[in-house]
């Protein structure tokens, strides 16, 4: 809860090329890379994507204390998922690659090279985009995002809703803290000792005031926007629209090439998987 609430881009991130990228470029890069990375199982390709993402991370010059907590959480989450994948079906790698070279052990939990290779691919799929997202999280002004979304072709009402939400997150966090403090002043048990049922009850006692304050907010903002005749025109312009610079074109073209390579690899590999065991 002690997250930094302001959206200002940090001092050490100013003037980096990743900060200068427009919101539209960032959305396009993020969407296309995460989707091709989701589909492709070509190990070399995933490694190339990871390196590409690390370039952005390098440029953002983030401090270790800024990303430490997140990285630990991601590591724990990824490890847990990989262990689950292994425990539930240790032979899955052999099924995928159609062969079985036993490395150690026997019976159900026999560890094969195929399974290890499959888990390596899985690991890459979990982490390849993390550096890119971390870089964008710390270098993007939310208003650029809405302008970028509408430029890509999202209906402007949806872009506007997303912009509103980013504007409201700090407000909502503040409201939430106030309500929670007020409820504690009235004697609400906030420690972690409470049981599951009490925790549910407790969070409902915070949620209900939050619901009413947010419904008020919705009504007031709706009236204000109606008075300003929001939504009467087919199109809308954005104050934060930026011109694409050279660096944007460079990044967009290289992303485009990467995507094309990724799609091409489906033919080269004869499917989504790169199989070194054939």
């Amino acid at each position: 809860m002690n997250q930094q609430i302001s959206y200002d881009v940090g001092k050490s991130q100013e003037n980096r090329w990743v900060t200068r990228l427009t919101g539209m470029t960032k959305i396009l890069v993020l969407l296309s890379l995460s989707i091709i990375g989701m589909v492709s199982y070509d190990t070399w390709y995933l490694i190339v994507l990871t390196v590409f993402a690390v370039l952005f991370y390098q440029s953002a010059h983030l401090k270790w204390h800024q990303v430490r907590g997140l990285l630990y959480a991601i590591a724990a989450f990824t490890a847990l998922n990989l262990i689950l994948v292994y425990l539930f079906n240790p032979a899955y790698g052999s099924q995928v690659y159609g062969s079985s070279h036993i490395l150690i052990g026997r019976g159900f939990f026999a560890l094969t090279w195929e399974e290890l290779f499959y888990l390596l691919n899985m690991l890459l799929k979990y982490v390849f985009i993390v550096p890119l997202i971390l870089a964008f999280l710390f270098t993007t002004n939310p208003s650029e995002l809405a302008a970028g979304m509408s430029r890509i072709g999202f209906p402007y009402k949806i872009s506007y809703a997303v912009e509103l939400s980013l504007r409201y997150i700090p407000d909502v966090i503040r409201d939430f803290k106030q309500i929670s403090l007020a409820q504690q002043a009235r004697g609400l048990e906030m420690s972690k000792k409470a049981g599951l049922w009490n925790r549910l009850k407790r969070s409902t006692q915070i949620l209900i005031p939050l619901v009413f304050s947010s419904m008020d907010k919705i009504e007031i903002t709706t009236r204000a926007m109606k008075l300003r005749r929001f939504g009467t025109k087919q199109r809308r312009t954005w104050y934060m629209t930026q011109k694409l610079g050279k660096i944007d074109y460079l990044v967009l073209v290289s992303t485009g090439l990467l995507i094309a390579v990724g799609i091409g690899l489906f033919w080269v590999d004869g499917g989504r998987f790169y199989n070194p065991f054939k």
């Binding site: 997303v162 509103l164 997150i169 909502v172 903002t221 926007m225 939504g231």
Partner: peptide, 23 residues
């Protein structure tokens, strides 16, 4: 006058995303 989402729906979406994200 409005096509697609109503003004209220746009605002509700915005505030809603913020709260659900928080939760």
């Amino acid at each position: 006058r409005t096509k697609g989402l109503s003004v209220e729906a746009v605002v509700a979406t915005g505030v809603g995303i913020a709260i659900v994200f928080l939760l």
